[in-house]
Structures are given as structure tokens and as C-alpha cells.
Simulated assay, not measured.
Amino acid sequence: MEKIDYNVYILVVKGRVNYSINDKRIVGEKGDLLYIPSETVRSGKNHASGAHQKYTVAFTLAESGEKTATFPIKHHFHHIKAKNPEYVKHRMERLFVDSRGDRKFQSYICNGILQELLGMFARELESPAITPSKVKYAAIIEQYLLKNYRRPIEIEQLAKLINRSSSYTISVFKEVMGQSPIKYIHQLRISEACNLLLNTAMTVAAISDYLGYYDPSYFSRMFKKLTSMSPKEFAVYGHQLDISRHDFK
């Protein structure tokens, strides 16, 4: 146990972790976001179920920052389930990369990413709770997309999985995941495209066909839309992006 003199923002990405927050026991699970403010007495350790993985951002605020209404989060412990943990994960990876070394405009960029993360957290704190049934529906759809993202997928197919209308299917997935099923499919495909461009000798046309785009020009447009780079540019410079290479917009 120790009293910390900095703020901590955490995303749990695997397993479970035990925390003691001011003598209160907390269990963080995959997909959980935790905000631990400075002056908190806390400790942490692995859960009995095994090891865990998490992304942790530690930061301090200027004196005026904690005393004005500009800081979006009340200064006490918060624990919520992330609506879009993959996006939070990508932004934390981007923050990690930009915080290393001595890059130009480093402080400006890192502060911007941190402000985005905290703003998203504050917004989710104020959002109405999502019902368990909606979370279940979104999970069913997500698992199907993870297994079948290379195939042509129609919204009607997804609607049949949960026995709901197409409009409701889109709405509930977007509410829980923060994006439409179609955009999620594109992100899965482009994520795999990044891996293939960096780690195989496959051509852009072959990758396009493999991922179910069939039209290389459309694939290239979608790739650039999500990564800000063309597939050929990414193949050349992608290694320099390190773990941030999946930082999709």
C-alpha cells in the first residue's frame, strides 16, 4: 500500500487484477477502465485466476488544473467498462510511442492524446448504463465478425444472430462498441492488412482479394482512410510506427 502523488488511468486488456483502493477491494477485468487520482492509497496484484495485462498512463496536473472545472473527471476513484476498448488501446499505444525519445512537438502531441482519452472517459461516465442484454447482443455480433470478417457480410445476417431488426442491430452494436458493424469489419480487415504488408511478401492485390475486397483500388482507398497511408507507403514505413501501426481513425 502506498499513497500515490500522480493520477493513473488504466485499461485492462487481459485477465483480472486485484486492487485495494483506500482499503476497498476492486477487481479489474478485461475491458475495464480505471481512474485512480493522486493522494489515493492503493496497491495492486495479480488475481488468483492468473496473470493479467494492462495499459497504464501515469500523469500529473498543473495546480490550477485540479482546482478548476476544466478538468473533466471528478477527483475520486472511477471504475467503468469501456465501450470501445480497442480504440482506447490504440490511443494508449500511440501515446507510448510518442512519449519515447525526444521527438519534435512531443509534449504537444502527448498532451492532446491524453486529453482525448480523459475526455472519452468523462463522456462514458455521464452516459447512461448499457443494459446487459445489449452488451450480450453486441458480443454475439462481435464474435461473429471476428471469425468471418474476410467474408461478405450483410446487416441482415447479423440481425438474424440476435433475432432483431437490421436497424436495431446497427444501433445496439454502435451503442456498445462506439462504431457501426461495417466500420468494425473494415478495421479488422485493415488491421490484418497491416500485418500482412509488414510480415509477408503478398502483393497489395493479393491482400485485397484475401481480405474480401476484390477491388484493389477500393481496398487502397479504405486503407488510406483508416491509416492515413497507402498500402505501399505502409509497407515501406510501417515498421517505423512500431506498436502504433494499428492506430486507426
Rank of each mutant, 00 (worst) to 15 (best):
H78K: 11
H78V: 08
N111R: 15
N111M: 10
H90A: 14
R91T: 03
L95A: 12
I73C: 00
N111Q: 15
G119T: 15
H79I: 04
C110T: 15
C110M: 04
K83H: 11
L118K: 10
P85D: 06
S99G: 10
N111P: 03
H79L: 07
L117D: 01
L118I: 15
E86L: 13
L95Q: 05
D98W: 09
G112F: 12
L117S: 03
H79K: 09
H78L: 02
P85C: 07
K74R: 08
N84T: 07
F77N: 04
V88L: 15
C110Q: 12
H75V: 01
F105V: 06
H76I: 01
L95N: 03
R100M: 14
R94Q: 05
A122L: 02
N84S: 13
I109Q: 14
F77K: 03
R100P: 00
R103A: 14
H76L: 07
Q106D: 09
I113A: 07
R123D: 06
R91A: 13
H78A: 05
K74F: 05
I109M: 10
L114C: 06
A122R: 09
A122Y: 07
K104N: 06
V88R: 05
F121Y: 15
E116C: 08
H78M: 03
I80W: 02
K104R: 12
R103S: 12
K83N: 14
I80S: 04
A82N: 05
I113E: 08
H76V: 01
K104G: 01
V88S: 05
K104I: 13
H75D: 12
G112R: 13
K83D: 08
L95D: 06
Y87R: 01
H78F: 13
K81T: 15
Q106I: 04
F77I: 02
R103L: 15
L118Q: 05
D102K: 15
G101S: 06
H90S: 04
M120F: 03
G101D: 08
R123A: 11
I113H: 11
D98V: 05
E124W: 06
F96N: 05
P85M: 07
G112V: 05
F96C: 02
I80H: 01
P85V: 01
Y87H: 04
K74I: 07
K89L: 12
K83C: 11
S99A: 10
N84W: 00
L117M: 06
L117Y: 05
F77E: 04
K83Q: 13
P72H: 05
A82C: 10
H90R: 12
